[in-house]
Design a protein around this nucleic acid. Structure first.
Lengths: 215, 215
DNA sequence: CGGTAATCTAGAACAAGTTTCAGACTTGAT
DNA sequence: ATCAAGTCTGAAACTTGTTCTAGATTACCG
């Protein structure tokens, strides 16, 4: 990977879906292309994880020229992070349907995260690809990664049943997200058991009580 | 990166320093080569981070053939994780000299981590290279990553002044490590300020009190 | 010392991410 | 319908991690 390429935020014109800023509306065919690409990406990732998502294959599977693929997603990491955004949206929808049942906010958050975790377990390779991309992303992907982070925050706050979090609560949520990502990685690389992930998530969720009913 | 290469733990003969198992003692010249390699790696990393550590350059800087470099460190990630082990050992030595002064275990751990954080701030590119390698590492690097994790655990337990931690305390320590790595990453990729990292570390360290004086 | 196995070297070769380019195709405005 | 601007395609080129090979060097055993 050329050093400069990863560092400089390539200023590709329209299709690159940046953070929020003016995204020139895509034509129908463009939207379809984008969707095909994301689908191919997820499919390849489900097979063999990060390494199996090869740009040439994604291009071929989605019936798009390599150059076009790079116009839509300026790097493999961008592509996988976008794939994660996509999957996250899905998951948020799913989670919304059956709200967690715990009594305390901590319990509900832990329950939600474990539910998400079980979903990821069903596609461990896909999880691998997405999470590795997320943590490997450099500054040029920051807007997209940030968006994923915001979406995760929303999910957690949702589970807490909170509309207007205090700074302390936001910090707790960030810490939970940190733990979530990192625990996922240790599990994916075989360095932690599922049981351990569960315990750690429950442990970190206790921080919520700590910020809800102050010291 | 060939898929298989990253996945299969290459059984290179002697120099590959595995986890703990029998490492045939290196001759003096071999030890020197290893040291030159790690030094070159750290130096290049300090310049431009992960991307600047190019295997050909490392080989050249350390006066070693490319093939030899790969015999000592079977991949770029292995090399960078080993570099991290090296730097961690350094840091542990440094931290040991001036034990943290806080009254509670939580304070001492937070103080220690912030001290480490300030050290990393002095070489942000190096930190970038090491941390990115650490989280990007796949299963083939697990033993080495695990070793880094164990060393980090020791540092934290040291700061807590604990010899015989309970399972709950170990979980808290793991969560702190998760937060530490992940917070570092968000800082390195410009998505969080130093102040935010500090707050999050202090937040997560409160878990210690929670496990020390039970609910 | 002599011989043999292990190690090291230089350099070619290969794989996958990324860039580039010329030409065909679409789109939108006139 | 027509033209200019913007997109897409196919293919080649380039970069950097990784592997491979043949021949020199080194380490060690008797």
């Amino acid at each position: 990977m050329p050093a400069e390429a990863k560092t400089a935020a390539k200023a590709a014109q329209p299709p690159v879906r940046a953070a929020q800023p003016v995204t020139p509306p895509l034509t129908e065919r463009q939207e379809a292309r984008r969707r095909r690409i994301l689908h191919a990406s997820a499919q390849l990732a489900s097979r063999g994880g990060f390494d199996a998502v090869q740009m040439r294959e994604v291009a071929e599977s989605s019936q798009v020229a390599l150059g076009t693929l790079y116009r839509y997603f300026p790097s493999k990491v961008h592509l996988l992070v976008a794939t994660m955004q996509d999957q996250l949206a899905h998951m948020h929808g799913t989670l919304r349907k059956k709200p967690p049942s715990g009594d305390t906010a901590a319990e509900r958050v832990a329950e939600t995260l474990m539910r998400a975790f079980r979903a990821l377990q069903r596609e461990p390779h896909l999880a691998d690809a997405m999470v590795r991309a997320l943590t490997f992303a450099d500054r040029s992907v920051s807007p997209e990664v940030d968006q994923v982070s915001r979406q995760t925050t929303v999910i957690i706050l949702d589970a807490m049943g909170l509309d207007d979090p205090t700074p302390a609560q936001l910090s707790a949520v960030r810490v939970i997200e940190h733990t979530w990502h990192s625990a996922l990685i240790t599990w994916l690389s075989g360095r932690a058991s599922i049981a351990q992930v569960k315990i750690d998530i429950e442990t970190v969720c206790r921080l919520i009580d700590l910020t809800t009913n102050p010291e």
